[in-house]
């Protein structure tokens, strides 16, 4: 089966990102395809490479980035939600005159059309959030 995944909450405050990640890993291990993970609302905060969680706990951004690197999962951050919350790639930073970017490896910034495409093309869209 082809899954689309929607992550609506940031890391650590809510378990949504953890559960979405574990769902994605389990789906792939079971032979399914994860078509795309779309990060919306505070979910965009999963994609900053500047977080420094305690070393004896999981690092959600690195788990997601590893999943993208090893399994080729498409991690997409909503551009409008990202702009509100200060998640920028080099292009966005330049466009808005900011002095740095913070997007993590494996993530890309794009529009809500990417969520629609996942909803339409995947067999199931599974939402994680409150």
């Amino acid at each position: 089966m082809r899954f689309g995944i929607l992550v609506n909450e940031g890391p650590y405050t809510h378990q949504a990102s953890d559960t979405a990640y574990r769902f994605a890993v389990a789906a792939i291990e079971s032979g399914h395809e994860v078509f795309r993970v779309f990060f919306y609302h505070d979910g965009v905060n999963n994609g900053t490479r500047l977080s420094v969680p305690p070393r004896d706990d999981r690092n959600m951004q690195m788990l997601w980035s590893d999943l993208a690197a090893k399994q080729g999962v498409d991690l997409v951050i909503c551009v409008a939600a990202a702009q509100r919350r200060g998640i920028l790639d080099a292009n966005e930073a330049k466009r808005h005159g900011k002095d740095g970017d913070n997007i993590a490896p494996g993530f890309r910034i794009s529009g809500l059309g990417q969520l629609m495409e996942a909803a339409i093309e995947a067999d199931r869209l599974v939402t994680f959030g409150d």
């Binding site: 809500l112 059309g113 629609m116």
Partner: peptide
């Protein structure tokens, strides 16, 4: 909370996909 506003944005953007 921001859910209503960002939810409405999805509806309006999503309209272009003719579902």
């Amino acid at each position: 909370t921001i859910y209503a506003l960002e939810g409405l944005e999805v509806v309006l953007v999503g309209a272009a996909f003719e579902q």
